[in-house]
Amino acid sequence: MADVEASKSLSGLLNGIAQKVYYSNSEITEELLKDELYPELSQEEFTALHEKMKALIKMKRQGSGGLGAEQAAALSRFWKSQRVRVRESLLSQSRWEPGLRGLSWRVDLHTAASRGDAAQSGPVALMELELGRAGQFILFVTGFVSKSSADSEFVCLEFDEAKVNQVLKKMSDIQQSIDRIVPRT
């Protein structure tokens, strides 16, 4: 029974450290973890255990030498359950610009009657981009509308045939530049 309690306490410690280090949860403190999980340890013993587990988590290994069997098993279980979440957290923290969350598009026909200008009739591509709210997004394209929700920015673009061809040409140029640096396999 003591092994089960020790394993639960260690799992709680690992999850608490992850909350603080990877998920920026400021409510989790070293004192809270000690009081809740290891009240029987002295402050020095707990600090040593906390620092050891924090270092192991930051090394992102499932197992490591110098650990007891229970500690190695708890660390392995932690990484099996948290690997994806930690990766996503690290990726989101490393982005400086908003990320593209979604894209939808359609082709419409604008007639001379609906636009008021016979020269503007014909097919147009309408595109809506959903961007993450990590920062301010500035778009240097004419004919866009921007709207916001709680955690996304939506940008609506309208392209005529010439603009679509320009975008496709630019994308082709980008792909060629990438291929010069990293050839496709």
Score class of each variant (00 low, 15 high):
72 A>P: 00
90 L>C: 05
18 A>T: 02
185 T>N: 10
32 L>S: 06
59 M>Q: 15
123 P>A: 01
134 A>L: 14
147 K>V: 09
143 G>D: 09
122 G>L: 02
108 D>N: 00
36 E>M: 13
94 S>G: 08
74 A>S: 11
36 E>Y: 13
85 R>Y: 13
161 E>N: 08
79 W>I: 04
92 S>C: 04
167 V>I: 14
30 E>T: 14
163 K>G: 01
7 S>F: 15
8 K>W: 04
83 R>M: 03
89 S>N: 05
144 F>R: 10
115 R>S: 01
49 L>P: 00
31 E>V: 12
126 L>T: 02
78 F>M: 04
184 R>D: 06
27 E>S: 15
74 A>Q: 04
17 I>S: 00
111 T>M: 00
134 A>G: 12
46 F>Y: 07
125 A>T: 07
5 E>G: 03
21 V>D: 13
167 V>A: 07
27 E>W: 03
139 L>M: 12
175 Q>R: 08
23 Y>Q: 06
43 Q>P: 05
80 K>L: 11
165 N>I: 08
69 A>K: 14
75 L>Q: 03
161 E>F: 09
9 S>H: 05
95 R>S: 12
137 F>Q: 14
45 E>Q: 09
78 F>C: 03
1 M>R: 06
77 R>Q: 12
71 Q>E: 15
100 L>Y: 12
131 L>W: 12
31 E>A: 13
163 K>S: 06
67 L>D: 07
180 R>T: 09
68 G>T: 14
51 E>Y: 09
101 R>A: 15
86 V>L: 05
153 E>W: 07
10 L>P: 01
136 Q>P: 09
139 L>H: 11
184 R>I: 08
60 K>L: 07
118 A>I: 14
47 T>L: 15
8 K>N: 06
57 I>H: 00
113 A>Y: 03
4 V>L: 13
152 S>R: 15
174 I>A: 11
84 V>W: 14
95 R>I: 07
126 L>R: 07
179 D>P: 00
13 L>K: 02
97 E>G: 08
123 P>C: 00
53 M>V: 01
68 G>C: 06
36 E>C: 10
63 G>L: 15
6 A>Q: 05
167 V>D: 04
155 V>T: 08
155 V>Q: 08
104 S>Q: 14
82 Q>I: 02
16 G>K: 00
115 R>C: 01
47 T>H: 12
77 R>H: 09
38 Y>D: 07
25 N>C: 11
63 G>M: 14
165 N>L: 09
131 L>E: 00
117 D>V: 06
152 S>L: 11
40 E>T: 09
81 S>D: 06
164 V>N: 00
52 K>R: 05
